[in-house]
Amino acid sequence: MNAPLILFYFFEAAAAIAAVALLFARSVFYGALLVIVILLALAGLYVLAFAEFVAVTQILVYAGGILVVIIFGIMLTSRLSGKPLVVEHTLPVSGGLVGLAFFGALVYAIALQTFPTSESVAKTSTTFDATQTVGIALMSDYVLPFETTGILLLMALIGAAVMASDNASKKI
């Protein structure tokens, strides 16, 4: 049991526990915080899977960006309503059953597969600088999707700003 493996199971356990807690969370705010925990744990797992750049992006964009926005949203909605947001549950039994069945089906499907053990490849992959390669790839092979996502981001930004703006009757 080496250190990376301990870290790996620690992060896995953290994500799984936070996910279970999310299922039973009755406050949206706590739910958002639990999602942050999951996202950070996932970022740790990404590092362990030799995807440092994705991990950093995960932390920056998700934990630092989206979740902050979502928490702002939660606070805004609770400010508008004036009472804390308590989440009711609908279809708890059937929803849970469907989720469990889904999980079971996926686990069964995964267990059927055999993958090459990553021990052999792990040693070679530590030798190259992932971030630099990702940067070069983004600017060469993946430049078209990169630019396209830039446009998509711009559109989402403008759209979100327009939709969330207060003067609803103003002509756009």
Partner: peptide
């Protein structure tokens, strides 16, 4: 719920 249900049936 129904969509997921259908997908599960499909997976099985």
């Amino acid at each position: 719920f129904w969509a997921a249900f259908a997908i599960i049936i499909f997976i099985i």
